[in-house]
Design a protein around this nucleic acid. Structure first.
Lengths: 231, 231
DNA sequence: TGGCTGAATTTTGAATACACTTCCCTCAAG
DNA sequence: CTTGAGGGAAGTGTATTCAAAATTCAGCCA
C-alpha cells in the first residue's frame, strides 16, 4: 500500500490529521500502557510497520520520540525495546513526582477557586466511598482525579506536562499497589488535611504535606515489589 | 557523498561512535545554546543536511528528539523552528526548576558528605570573590557549580536529568540577567544559609529555602524582560 | 553428542526517491 | 497602486532502497 498517496479523508482522521509519527507514538504508548507490550520487549520494526500499515520512517521517528520520553530505550544496531524501570529508578521517579506535586500544591494555593476545592472535596468523599465498597478501580480513579485537580489548579502547563509524562511512565506500578488499612487511613487523613490547607491557601504547608503524602505511596509501591524486581 | 559507506574511522568519531541522530541533536543543541540559531529561526533541512554532511533521515530524527525536549517546535507541513519561550512559560519553568532544586536540597541532606559541603563552601567563596572582582562569567559559573553540586548530591539521576533539560532550555535567559546589589546580597546570604542547612542536614528547611532562592532569581529574570518579550 | 565456524537471513541505520504542501514571484484585472 | 490568481520552486512528509551489523542455523570437527 502506498500510504503517501492517501488523502486526508481516506486516512480516516479527517481535518484534524496530525503527523503520522505522532499517531504511531500514541498507538505504541497505548500498547505499552495496556500491557500488550511488556517491559524489555523488543520493537520489531517490520512487524509494527505491517501492523500499522505505514513505512519505517514515521515509525522510527516515533521510536525516537518515545525513547526521549523514556518509554523506550535504544540499543545501538539492535533497535529499541520497552524500557524497564528498576526499583531504584522507580524510587527516584517517585521522589521527583513528590517534588512536582509539592510544587503544584504550593502554586495551587495562589489561584485555586472555592469551586475547585469543593470539587476536590466531592471527589474525596467518592474516593472514600469507593474504598469502603471495595471498588478498587473507582478508588484509584478518584484519587488520581484529586491529584490532577491540584495539578490543574497550579495553572502551570510546564509542570502539568512533566507530571503527566512521569506519571505515565510509572502508571502500571503506581496503580497496581495495594494498601493496608493503616496506610489507607493515613492517606485519607492526609487528603483531608490537604483540603484544609487548600481552603486556608497555605501553600508552604501544603507543599510539605504533598511531598510526604507521595512518599507514603512510594513506600507502598516499594513494599509491593520484590527486592530486585523490574517493571 | 555517500555517508553510509563511511566507516567508523572516516567518520571522525572513532570507536565511541553513537547514533548519527544523537550527534546531530547535540550539534543543533549547541547551535541553539551558542545563539547561532535564534528563537523562532526556521530549520531548513536541506541547509542542515549539507552543513552536517548527512541525509535527511537522521536529521529529521534529531528534530523529533529536540522537539520532544522542547527545544524545537514542529509546524505541520512547514518543518520546525527553534522554540521561543514566552515570559509566561519562562516563569512556569522557573517555578518547576525551583521545585526540582527544592527536591534536590531535601534529598541531598540525606546522603551528602562533609567533603561535598566543603567543596560547595569553597565555590561559594570563589563566587563572592568573582562578583567583587566584577568577573560576571566567573560569578555565574561558580553559582551554577554550587547548584549542580547540590543536584548531584541528591543521588537522583532522574531528577538531575530533568533539571539539566529544563536548565538547558532557559540557559540563555538565566545567565543573561543582571542583579542589583540588593538582590546580590540576598542571594549570597541565601547561599550561606543553604550551606548551614546542608551541614545541619535539615532537608525540609533547605527545600523551602531553595524554592525561595530560585524564585528570587525568577524575579530578576522577569524584571530583565520586557513585558511581552520572548526569548 | 556438543560446541564452534562461517555463510545465509534478518534487522537495523542511513540515504535516496517520490508525493504532496507551502511559499514566492509574476502578472493582469480592478 | 493594490490585489489576487496561478504557476513554478522550494521544502516537508512518507516510502523505498541500499549498506552494515546482528542473528540464525547448517555443517564441521573434536
Amino acid at each position: 500500500m502506498r500510504r503517501g498517496t492517501m488523502n486526508k479523508i481516506e486516512s480516516g482522521i479527517g481535518i484534524n490529521r496530525r503527523y503520522l509519527h505522532d499517531e504511531v507514538a500514541d498507538r505504541i504508548r497505548e500498547l505499552i500502557r495496556s500491557g500488550e507490550m511488556e517491559p524489555k520487549a523488543r520493537i520489531n520494526e517490520g512487524e509494527l510497520t505491517e501492523r500499522f500499515g505505514i513505512s519505517r520512517t514515521p515509525l522510527r521517528e516515533a521510536i525516537k520520540i518515545l525513547a526521549t520520553e523514556g518509554l523506550l530505550e535504544l540499543l545501538p544496531n539492535r533497535g529499541a525495546r520497552v524500557a524497564s524501570i528498576s526499583e531504584i529508578e522507580l524510587e527516584e521517579m517517585m521522589e521527583v513526582i513528590a517534588g512536582l506535586e509539592a510544587t503544584a500544591g504550593d502554586l495551587a494555593c495562589r489561584t485555586i477557586g472555592d469551586a475547585e476545592i469543593d470539587a476536590i472535596t466531592t471527589d474525596h468523599a467518592a474516593m472514600v466511598a469507593a474504598w469502603k465498597a471495595g471498588d478498587e478501580a473507582g478508588y484509584f480513579g478518584r484519587n488520581r482525579r484529586i491529584h490532577e485537580a491540584i495539578m490543574a489548579a497550579s495553572r502551570n502547563t510546564v509542570l502539568a506536562n512533566l507530571y503527566a509524562s512521569l506519571s505515565g511512565r510509572i502508571q502500571r506500578s503506581r496503580y497496581s499497589a495495594h494498601q493496608t488499612p493503616d496506610q489507607w487511613a493515613r492517606a485519607v487523613a492526609e487528603h483531608e488535611r490537604m483540603i484544609e490547607l487548600l481552603r486556608a491557601r497555605d501553600g508552604g504547608s501544603l507543599a510539605i504535606l504533598m511531598r510526604e503524602h507521595i512518599r507514603g505511596k512510594k513506600s507502598v509501591i516499594a513494599a509491593h515489589y520484590g527486592p530486585a524486581e523490574a517493571v
